[in-house]
Write a protein that binds this DNA or RNA. Structure first.
Lengths: 203, 203
DNA sequence: TGTTAAAGTGAATTCACTTTCACATAATAG
DNA sequence: CTATTATGTGAAAGTGAATTCACTTTAACA
């Protein structure tokens, strides 16, 4: 009757199930709960992942993919660098609001703990991400819309500054604090701070 | 021979021991390790704290105290609002660099997890903290050094934006990324973004 | 100095998970 | 149709803590 799921779909299903569980609480990601969500028995998970750590690895991969998707879409929708960055920030707001598991995972220490390999998982995602942002910023400097007296990486940090604290508060407040509104407000200051002022023209 | 420790010192010693353990990894904070660090036996901890959660509560209290100390000292050293805020940010950089356990704890989900009471612990600390910052910002607006077209809370978020992302990266990178340098750079943009521009005078 | 309460000890218990394993069943290819 | 391989099952074992408890030691002080 019921067709069995093929290998790849099952692996993905498992990671998705874990991501959903992360929305409540990272500690809800137990082998048992993940298995239950996939309607299989705990031990069956081990046919698809060597152990729980590998499930987390799959989870990180999932997050990486979704984050990248966001940035790519944002770049398609806008042309100016600042507009792209702002769009990405807004998309992130919607995104983490929709998947509260994402900040949970990023800030979690279960997923990225002592053994530096696991930690490097997210660190690499962040590095890749920061680099992509830096390239956008650099382009903005070349076209003259972003001030050139700071490094592109500093623009990136300013960008992170608009997104990370609201996300963190969203995480801490267990969903009560709406990160999207604050990100919008922060973006006003962000634009103001990084745009090239052309002081001579402005006065 | 050896004098036994009095009740209060012992409680504090336990919290301090937990904080030190947090520097490596939150999961290193086990009843056994904490006890070992205090040179007593695990079960003895229960004479001082009802359970592990209460130890974490003591830990949060310790963090709250240390954070407050920072802000108070910064306020003493400077007069202008912006200078105070910048000073606090710098102090925080030094601070978390010295106590890597602090960001670990803040971002940890062991310490502040599902049951909302625990989570509220840090949430309250953050709320208190943000309020204190907001008051400084408001004062800055009254004296005219900070622009008045944004809410004090937005200044606070901008402030957090300078400190939180570097702290987070410090945490993720396991101490390799130095938050202090980036905070310094971020503060340049921070000051630039929030100070009152007096456009009429500047041109 | 002998009594009492507080603090510490060690062993045992419990608990929530993860992981393994021998066996069962479904899909697939020869 | 049968052999083979991939998946899934259920029970059992293993693990790493947290917590409890009866018992000892220590400090304080009447």
């Amino acid at each position: 009757m019921k067709k069995r799921m093929d290998r790849d779909s099952r692996r993905e299903q498992i990671a998705e199930a874990a991501l959903k569980l992360a929305a409540t609480d990272i500690s809800a990601i137990t082998v048992e709960n993940v298995a239950k969500a996939c309607k299989i028995v705990p031990s069956a998970l081990y046919r698809h992942y060597k152990n729980k750590d590998e499930i987390f690895e799959g989870l990180r991969e999932l997050v990486r993919k979704k984050l990248k998707e966001n940035t790519v879409n944002a770049a398609k929708e806008e042309t100016s660098s600042i507009a792209i960055l702002k769009n990405i920030a807004l998309k992130h707001g919607d995104f983490i609001y929709k998947y509260p598991g994402i900040p949970r995972l990023l800030f979690s220490d279960q997923v990225a703990n002592k053994d530096s390999l696991k930690r490097k998982g997210f660190l690499n995602i962040m590095a890749e991400y920061r680099e992509a942002m830096a390239m956008i910023a650099q382009k903005g400097q070349q076209t003259g819309e972003i001030r050139t007296d700071i490094r592109p990486e500093d623009v990136v940090f300013m960008f992170l500054g608009t997104v990370v604290p609201p996300s963190f508060l969203f995480h801490l407040s267990d969903g009560e604090f709406d990160p999207r509104l604050q990100i919008q407000r922060n973006l006003i200051l962000f634009e103001d701070a990084v745009k090239n002022r052309h002081i001579s023209e402005e006065s």
